[in-house]
């Protein structure tokens, strides 16, 4: 076929204007002819670009660029970017950031005013427990896991569902993971399960999960105190939150020692 004919054939192939016989013949011709395949893919892509009803399904998982993108998206940096953006999306959604920044601006203005005004303002603008929770809960700081064989995909799915606020799905993934190998469970998952119950407004269960981490032999078990602080703040349980903060402040090596001090001052 001469060049013009080939392109006409491609047009007819993509627009579905070929008869069954022609179609089979053309498909046969495409097999083993990578130049023709490439040309068809390009025309299909152009159709997609110009015609809203056409789908461009010509992207190969094996292209070098696609592999590079997938690798970066799945990397720790990629996950961190995703976490930051998700967090900011929720903040915007809840109007938290606007509310918070206006309170802070007001605080700074008030601090330069007369002493009486300052005192009044101080009481008026004191951080609420929920503000503190929003300030200190950082989704990107949640632990990553390394797991053996098939269980890693369950953890990946559980984490992903958690980040997408699909808490029931995430909990079911974590439970399945625990059932598969109860003895080999990484106790850091209880941070996630604790936070899931917290999101579901089940305070007792949330604390119960975090206590499982606290009582484990894991080197990071003091993280449980920190997450208990956050959960208590979310539920406006100031006394309990202060108690947990005091546990963290017993040892400067404890997880989030500096932040614990800050929160205690603010409370």
């Amino acid at each position: 076929m001469i060049e013009g004919e080939i392109h006409e054939q491609i047009e007819r192939f993509l627009s579905g204007a070929m008869s069954d016989v022609e179609m089979k013949q053309f498909q046969k011709e495409m097999i083993g002819n990578s130049a023709l395949q490439e040309e068809v893919a390009l025309y299909q892509s152009i159709n997609f670009h110009l015609n809203e009803d056409v789908e461009d399904d010509t992207i190969s998982d094996n292209s070098e660029y696609n592999r590079k993108l997938k690798e970066y998206i799945g990397s720790e940096q990629g996950e961190k970017i995703q976490a930051i953006l998700l967090e900011e999306k929720y903040k915007y959604h809840n109007g938290l950031s606007q509310n918070k920044s206006s309170k802070r601006i007001f605080y700074y203005v008030a601090s330069t005013a007369a002493a009486v005004v300052f005192v009044i303002s101080f009481f008026f603008l004191k951080y609420s427990e929920k503000d503190l929770y929003a300030d200190y809960y950082k989704i990107e700081e949640l632990p990553s896991f390394t797991s053996r064989s098939g269980k890693s995909s369950l953890l990946t799915s559980a984490k992903s569902n958690f980040r997408n606020k699909q808490f029931d799905k995430s909990l079911s993934d974590f439970n399945e993971y625990i059932e598969k190998d109860a003895e080999g469970v990484d106790p850091l998952i209880y941070i996630y399960t604790g936070l899931i119950y917290s999101e579901k407004n089940e305070l007792e269960k949330a604390i119960e999960q975090l206590t499982l981490l606290e009582n484990s032999d894991n080197i990071d078990n003091t993280r449980a105190f920190w997450y208990k602080v956050l959960v208590y703040l979310k539920f406006d349980k100031k006394v309990e939150a202060k108690e947990m903060l005091s546990f963290i402040l017993k040892d400067p090596n404890n997880y989030k020692y500096k932040e614990a001090k800050e929160i205690l001052e603010k409370l």
């Binding site: 892509s45 152009i46 670009h49 992207i59 660029y65 696609n66 993108l69 992903s160 699909q166």
Partner: peptide, 22 residues
């Protein structure tokens, strides 16, 4: 449509193709 099925790399390539074609 769950996020697991959502292919960000594919969407990036489609967008870049769109820019090139445009």
């Amino acid at each position: 449509l769950t996020r697991e099925e959502y292919d960000h790399s594919e969407a990036i390539i489609l967008q870049e193709r769109w820019e090139l074609f445009d």
